[in-house]
Simulated assay, not measured.
Amino acid sequence: MRINLLSSFAAGIFITTSICGAVYLLDKNEVSTASVKTNETQTNLNGQLSKNEMKNNSASAEVTKVVLNVTQGMTSIDVGNMLKQANMIPDAFTFSKDVEKRGLENNLRPGIFVVNSEMTYDHVISTIFKK
């Protein structure tokens, strides 16, 4: 009787693990391990950003402060996607190409970085990609 109980328990664990694995692998939602936290929101998000300056057009607009949590294995395109999600840059792919042109793609290290909308485009890159 005892072996039968143990076999039933093992079969139950196997079936449960199989179901969880199937749900995990077949799920269409992508979950990112990176996090973007916005401490303050900007009231006016109209217009495109230039490469040389971030949004600092009007004195009445609040400053957007973004905390980037860069984890091991992230690339410049991942950082670009986080900055795009926070409305700090217009295009993540262009950001990644600019980082590659400067030869900084290998200088991305894990850590927490704080950038805001008053920083220039060059300053944002130099803050996150340190030599």
Score class of each variant (00 low, 15 high):
1 M>C: 04
1 M>E: 07
1 M>P: 02
1 M>V: 02
2 R>I: 00
3 I>A: 12
3 I>V: 04
4 N>F: 03
4 N>W: 03
5 L>W: 01
8 S>T: 04
10 A>F: 06
12 G>W: 01
14 F>N: 00
16 T>V: 05
16 T>K: 00
17 T>L: 13
19 I>S: 02
23 V>S: 05
23 V>I: 15
23 V>A: 09
23 V>Y: 13
24 Y>R: 06
25 L>S: 07
26 L>W: 06
26 L>V: 08
28 K>V: 07
28 K>L: 09
29 N>A: 13
30 E>Y: 13
30 E>T: 13
30 E>N: 12
30 E>V: 11
32 S>I: 14
32 S>E: 13
33 T>D: 14
34 A>T: 04
38 T>G: 04
39 N>P: 00
40 E>M: 02
41 T>D: 04
45 L>F: 05
47 G>P: 04
48 Q>S: 14
51 K>V: 09
51 K>T: 09
52 N>C: 07
53 E>Y: 06
53 E>M: 08
54 M>G: 15
55 K>G: 02
55 K>V: 05
56 N>H: 11
58 S>F: 09
62 E>Y: 08
64 T>P: 02
65 K>Y: 01
65 K>L: 01
67 V>G: 00
69 N>M: 08
71 T>C: 05
72 Q>H: 10
72 Q>Y: 12
73 G>V: 12
73 G>H: 06
75 T>D: 15
77 I>D: 10
79 V>E: 06
79 V>L: 07
80 G>N: 08
80 G>E: 05
80 G>Q: 09
82 M>T: 03
84 K>A: 12
85 Q>N: 12
86 A>K: 08
86 A>D: 08
87 N>R: 14
88 M>F: 03
89 I>R: 02
91 D>R: 05
91 D>S: 11
92 A>S: 15
93 F>A: 14
93 F>R: 09
93 F>H: 04
93 F>P: 00
94 T>M: 11
95 F>Q: 02
95 F>Y: 13
96 S>C: 00
97 K>N: 13
98 D>Q: 05
99 V>I: 14
100 E>F: 10
101 K>S: 12
101 K>Q: 13
102 R>W: 00
104 L>N: 03
105 E>F: 13
105 E>G: 06
108 L>V: 13
108 L>T: 09
113 F>A: 09
113 F>L: 03
114 V>D: 03
115 V>A: 06
115 V>T: 09
118 E>R: 11
119 M>E: 07
119 M>A: 06
120 T>H: 08
121 Y>L: 03
121 Y>C: 00
122 D>K: 11
122 D>I: 05
123 H>N: 15
124 V>M: 13
124 V>C: 07
126 S>A: 09
127 T>N: 05
129 F>P: 11
129 F>R: 12
130 K>W: 02
131 K>Y: 07
131 K>H: 10
131 K>G: 11
131 K>P: 15
